[in-house]
């Protein structure tokens, strides 16, 4: 139950954040790309949340404290580089996670086998952009570095234990760091040096503690359903 909620909420919340780019992306092509990624994540969220309850009730009627997503995915979009930094950190993690789950025989094996192909594309999309922004102009380089630095302290939470997820978190974290380091170096950027976890890091989303912007995001995400209960297209 906890694991399905955790993974489902990660996908749901990031999907909503990416959806916020609709109408605001720097170019039309990129808007479609971000919306595609958001829809992939929404599909994953629906499968995961439906496995533990009514998907609409879980998405639209839960209070902030009941959400189990990591704080990384609820962080506001910021500029495009900030969003890409969030995408890099999360999609590399999700790709490695789903790869492991797909190879196992647990309750998430079937979902992960399908989702791992979607997430491989999300990861590729993020990596391609990190390379271009990092190794682009002086301004894109600076913005990309700023995005990586600002979100670094939310990455430790990705490797905290989740009830019902039986996997080697140590190697997951090691593989993630190696993959992220490789992309960051190729992009001529610098891997952030601050703590990923501990006193000065963030991250208690899995326990239901969220950052301030999350409340505002939920208000927007939930208000239609709460204003018109049971409404349909």
């Amino acid at each position: 139950m906890t694991a399905a909620l955790a993974l489902g909420d990660d996908a749901l919340v990031l999907s909503h954040r990416l959806g916020e780019w609709a109408g605001h992306a720097p170019v039309l092509e990129e808007e479609v790309a971000l919306a595609n990624i958001a829809l992939d994540l929404l599909g994953q969220a629906r499968t995961l949340l439906s496995s533990v309850g009514d998907e609409d009730e879980l998405a639209f009627l839960r209070e902030e404290r009941s959400f189990r997503n990591v704080q990384l995915v609820e962080q506001p979009n910021g500029d495009f580089a900030h969003t890409i930094a969030r995408q890099l950190y999360f999609s590399v993690y999700q790709h490695l996670l789903y790869g492991r789950l797909a190879a196992g025989e647990g309750q998430f094996a079937a979902l992960a086998a399908k989702a791992v192909k979607e997430v491989a594309y999300h990861r590729d999309h993020a990596e391609q952009w990190v390379l271009r922004l990092g190794d682009g102009t002086a301004e894109s380089h600076e913005r990309m570095q700023r995005g990586l630095d600002a979100l670094w302290r939310y990455t430790g939470e990705l490797f905290e234990p989740v009830e019902g997820l039986d996997l080697d978190r140590q190697t997951l974290g090691d593989d993630w760091l190696a993959a992220v380091t490789s992309v960051v170096r190729r992009a001529t950027l610098t891997l952030p040096t601050g703590p990923q976890s501990g006193g000065w890091a963030a991250g208690a989303g899995r326990q239901g503690l969220h950052t301030e912007p999350f409340g505002r995001m939920l208000a927007e995400m939930q208000h239609l359903h709460r204003s018109h209960p049971g409404a349909s297209w």
């Binding site: 595609n36 590729d124 391609q128 271009r132």
Partner: peptide
């Protein structure tokens, strides 16, 4: 047709726009 900064990104944009 579509806009993209280079061939690699054009291929990815094409995937999103024309094969979804």
């Amino acid at each position: 047709s579509l806009h993209a900064p280079d061939a690699e990104m054009a291929l990815r944009n094409a995937r999103d726009l024309y094969t979804r």
